[in-house]
Amino acid sequence: MNSSDLDPFRAAESNERCRRLRKRILDISQQVKALHIAGAFSCMEVVETIYFHLMDRGTNRDTEDTFLMSKGHGCMAQYVALEELGVLSEKDISEYCTSHGILGVHPDYGNPGIEASTGSLGHGLTLAVGMAYADKLSGKRGTVYAVLSDGEMQEGSTWEGMMIAPTLGVSNLVAFLDLNDFQSLGRTSEVLPNFYPINAKVESFGWEVAEVSGHDTGALFNAVRSRKTDKPMMVLAKTTKGKGVSYMENVPIWHYRAPNADEYKTALRELGFAQ
């Protein structure tokens, strides 16, 4: 199996991009308060790895691969990645959540780069299974990448999707589980302790499972590129909610709060941007 870690140069480029994308989200938060910063920060490296390293864009930037943000509330990470790719424009982003714009707090199917409407948890996995299965029937080569949250693993529908995916043989499906151990009311490990261990549960449903640091783009990339089976794959990405800004990390209120002017400055400083 090909096990090519991101080389040192691309890893540095990747880290720099994630830093830049986090800043972009913080900038937006000074214009519009309605966004989920901490959940976007926890999956930033996962999103970056999929869009910039795993998805095959060919020479004309077209791709048969698909990105589906099942944890729809994390879509700010997706929006800024799509902006960097040129799929969304600076204008689209600047009009986020305004009456004349097209982008809202959750992904809306039909917008550039948005392959499905999500926002209600537990929908993305079965949608992704349907897409992946349809692609197989149609002889398309692409892979469907879905990003799930640990909170939405509590939805029964996610487990329905986990049951049917290996039955349909969707080897072209890779799900990333953003395991930040937080949901609205506290730590997932405290709300539902028996949710863990998650690894054995997913594996027992017929999936190939890899468990890596969700903030290490090289490790995330390598986990997918070194797949050993043709089962659907789930990458358990261990993350920190609010990653990159100390006062946001593992503090539930940042699920939906936007920083004030002082907090914004502190955040930029911590991310290494000169004031």
Binding site: A116, T126, L127, A128, G130, Y133
Partner: peptide, 22 residues
């Protein structure tokens, strides 16, 4: 496709396939 006794995934799968032209 018989998804089993799992109506949510029945609808989700229908939608996912429809997103792909089925």
């Amino acid at each position: 496709i018989n998804v089993g006794v799992a109506e949510q995934s029945m609808i989700g799968l229908c939608a996912g396939m429809a997103l792909r032209g089925f």
